[in-house]
């Protein structure tokens, strides 16, 4: 039972109070140019996912708190949450333990 802290509202809670949305930073090709999405690009978007041993960037949602989505970096070996960052923020530099220290830019469509 993982213990998670929502970076949006600060609620701390059990994994069952949150919802995991899987791998983060998958861009949706149709949002950029709906008429020019190759079959391969659509396949990758729908089905191709990483399964790393180590750092994994994920989307989570504070289901029993503020209802907001956020990003988290989690180590799949130790299950430790290394950092949390906003849902519209792009990925911090790899393995940065402190999200505040990494310069992140707001970017539309950075989610999913």
């Amino acid at each position: 039972m993982l213990m998670i802290t929502c970076p949006v509202c600060g609620a701390e809670g059990d994994e069952t109070d949150f919802h995991c949305g899987g791998q983060a930073h998958i861009s949706r090709p149709a949002s950029t140019d709906p008429h020019n999405v190759s079959d391969d690009a659509q396949r990758d978007y729908l089905y191709i996912r990483n399964n790393p041993k180590g750092l994994h960037r994920e989307m989570w949602m504070c289901a029993r708190g503020c209802g907001k989505w956020f990003h988290a970096e989690r180590d799949t070996v130790t299950l430790e949450f290394k950092s949390y960052y906003g849902i519209t923020e792009s990925a911090p530099p790899s393995s940065s333990p402190n999200p505040a220290a990494s310069k992140t830019t707001k970017k539309k469509s950075a989610g999913r």
């Binding site: 949006v8 509202c9 708190g65 503020c66 209802g67 907001k68």
Partner: peptide, 11 residues
């Protein structure tokens, strides 16, 4: 008579 409960950052 009015109570306002925080539900979310925008609710």
């Amino acid at each position: 008579d009015i109570t306002v409960l925080w539900m979310s950052v925008d609710q």
